[in-house]
Structures are given as structure tokens and as C-alpha cells.
């Protein structure tokens, strides 16, 4: 079969790109441990409090080790439940130091919600009956808005919070 010289160059370029892309994906999946954020664990959506992570006293930010934190959240229409502070007021801001590793664990009580910490890689779908997790290193200082990015109903735009990295 005769192939034009330019055709050969283009085919080499295409195949080389494909190999590079696959290597990068393989590196992320097998070396860095990247995996889908949900569908790994299930939960009874009508009784999320039965799960240890979502007991009212376990919601919100907890320091598990030096520089390691976990944040448990229950999403519902139209609120993110980060627990309550000392004055029994609902928490809306999560404060963590720069460079800390934060594991976000979230589930939904009702419909599909989104959980995105805008400006970071934390971006998950939150489905009822499933637990979504994402561990992120907070590399950059600043205030990052938490938004629901899956349309969940009339009060969708009222679902927000804040992560402050200091």
C-alpha cells in the first residue's frame, strides 16, 4: 500500500499523541490512585445518620492527623450541612491551613446535587444512595466558594458554602 509522505507524518503524530494521552491516564489511575468519586460505597438515603460519617456530631471539619483533615457533609435541597459551631449556628465556612490534605465525604438525602469547590479540583456529583469522596491537597491560599453544580430544584442557587485556605 502506498502512503503519501505527509500521511505518514500525520499518522505518526496521531499515534504518538494517543500513546502519550494513554500513558498520562495510566499514570493518574495506577500511580496517583485517581478513581471515580462515587459509586464505590452505598448508603440508605432515608437514614444517612446511621452511617458513622454522617452522624450530626461528625459533620463538618475534623483534624485527623497533622495537616490531614476530613470534612463530612450532608447535602439536601437546598443546603450543605457542615454541622454546627460552638454557638449551635450552622457552619458555612471551612478553614484549613495551606498545604493540608482534606478528604471531603458527602452524600445526598434527596436528589442529585453537585459539590464543587470552585478554583480547586474538588468537583463531585452527589447522588442519593451513594457516598462521594474526594481527597485534595489545598495548595493555594484564598477563599474558594462551594457551589452546587447539578440543578437540584428551585433553590439550587442557594446551595453554597466557603473553603478558606490560610
Amino acid at each position: 500500500m502506498h502512503l503519501h509522505k505527509y500521511e505518514k507524518v500525520w499518522l505518526t503524530f496521531g499515534m504518538a499523541s494517543l500513546i502519550i494521552f494513554l500513558l498520562v491516564i495510566g499514570f493518574a489511575a495506577f500511580w496517583k490512585g485517581t478513581h471515580p468519586q462515587s459509586h464505590l460505597e452505598t448508603i440508605d438515603q432515608n437514614n444517612v445518620e446511621a452511617h458513622d460519617s454522617f452522624k450530626p456530631e461528625n459533620l463538618g471539619l475534623t483534624e485527623v492527623a497533622d495537616g490531614k483533615y476530613k470534612v463530612n457533609i450532608v447535602a439536601s435541597a437546598f443546603n450543605y450541612d457542615f454541622g454546627v459551631d460552638k454557638d449551635e449556628k450552622p457552619v458555612k465556612t471551612i478553614r484549613v491551613p495551606q498545604g493540608s490534605t482534606v478528604l471531603f465525604t458527602i452524600t445526598s438525602k434527596d436528589v442529585v446535587h453537585g459539590f464543587q469547590v470552585a478554583g480547586t479540583n474538588v468537583n463531585m456529583m452527589v447522588e442519593p444512595g451513594h457516598i462521594s469522596r474526594y481527597e485534595a491537597v489545598m495548595k493555594n491560599k484564598g477563599e474558594f466558594t462551594i457551589v452546587c453544580n447539578e440543578y437540584c430544584g428551585i433553590g439550587h442557587h442557594q446551595m453554597f458554602g466557603k473553603v478558606e485556605v490560610y
Partner: peptide
């Protein structure tokens, strides 16, 4: 086919660049 080749390479680099 020189022009075709140049255009297709520009497209290729755009795709790789975007990725």
C-alpha cells in the same frame, strides 16, 4: 498536498495544546 498538511498539523497541535 502541502497546504492540507500544514492545516492538519495546525489542527493537531491545537488539539494537543488544548489537552
Amino acid at each position: 498536498l502541502k497546504g492540507t498538511f500544514i492545516m492538519v498539523m495546525i489542527l493537531g497541535f491545537l488539539m494537543v495544546g488544548a489537552w
